[in-house]
């Protein structure tokens, strides 16, 4: 408490009351970084081994990719054994589990198929995600080499890399994904500027207002038996 009291007093924010210090942190303006304020001194230093154990994210440029490699061929065997029961032998999916392969050229259609090949902008995302979350229900059970191999296989099935491709920490940041150029940052404040408007209150529509669609016709509300497949 004494260190805390001293620090608080040093910043002129404390009121000592019956031996207890009360501090009020100044509130910085919204969006501005907080001014450098005193450390409270809670927590302990994170050890390198601890950071290594948890820091498993891989960025599009390959930062964070662990040393290792795997081939398409190795990946195929692993995929059939560990993944195909849900995602299908060809990544086409069993039942309602996610589709992983195909869908190229479908993004403008009525039912776009968003897969690793047709939609994902970065190969690193597949490696990162499979490593952290798959196989579903047994996460973190694959070795890094196995994840490289499975990712290589998925990229190959999606016709992103050739049959003899070896994916590794060296080249994962360099794989060119077919849909990489299709993403752009949120532009709603300009593209949808017309939604900032003065709303109409009276006689806003001419003619009779007609019902054009009814949920009842489709009838997929949960107490009904069947439903369409959606993402």
């Amino acid at each position: 408490m004494s260190k805390f009291l001293k620090l608080s007093l040093a910043f002129g924010l404390a009121t000592a009351l019956s031996g207890v210090a009360f501090s009020q942190a100044p509130k910085p303006a919204a969006g501005k970084p907080a001014a450098v304020t005193a450390k409270v001194g809670l927590g302990r230093a994170a050890l390198p081994e601890e950071i290594k154990a948890w820091d498993i994210d891989v960025r599009p440029d390959g930062t964070g990719a662990p040393v290792g490699k795997g081939t398409v061929k190795q990946g195929e065997e692993l995929f059939l054994a560990q993944c195909a029961s849900c995602h299908g032998e060809f990544g086409e999916a069993v039942g309602r589990w996610p589709v992983l392969v195909g869908g190229r050229g479908s993004l403008k259609h009525d039912n776009p198929e968003k897969t690793v090949g047709s939609y994902w902008p970065d190969a690193s995302t597949a490696f990162d995600y499979i490593r952290r979350a798959m196989p579903f229900g047994n996460a973190r059970s694959l070795s890094d080499d196995e994840v490289y191999a499975i990712t290589a296989f998925l990229l190959n099935m999606n016709e992103v890399v050739k049959d003899d491709f070896v994916l590794s920490n060296e080249n994962i940041g360099k794989v060119k994904m077919p849909n990489a150029g299709a993403f752009f940052d949120d532009d709603r404040t300009t593209a949808e500027k017309h939604f900032w408007t003065a709303p109409c209150m009276k006689n806003c529509k001419t003619g009779e207002v007609k019902v054009t669609g009814r949920a009842r016709v489709i009838d997929v509300t949960p107490d009904s038996k069947t439903g369409p497949k959606v993402e």
Partner: peptide, 30 residues
């Protein structure tokens, strides 16, 4: 110093438009 392009901000939670392009980082709820 850069975003991580995780599965939940690429495969999911990006907004596919009619022309086949997709908005990303659409964080705010209108």
């Amino acid at each position: 110093d850069q975003p991580w392009a995780q599965r939940e901000e690429t495969s999911k939670y990006t907004d596919l438009l009619a022309d086949g392009r997709a908005r990303r980082h659409t964080w705010v709820m209108d």
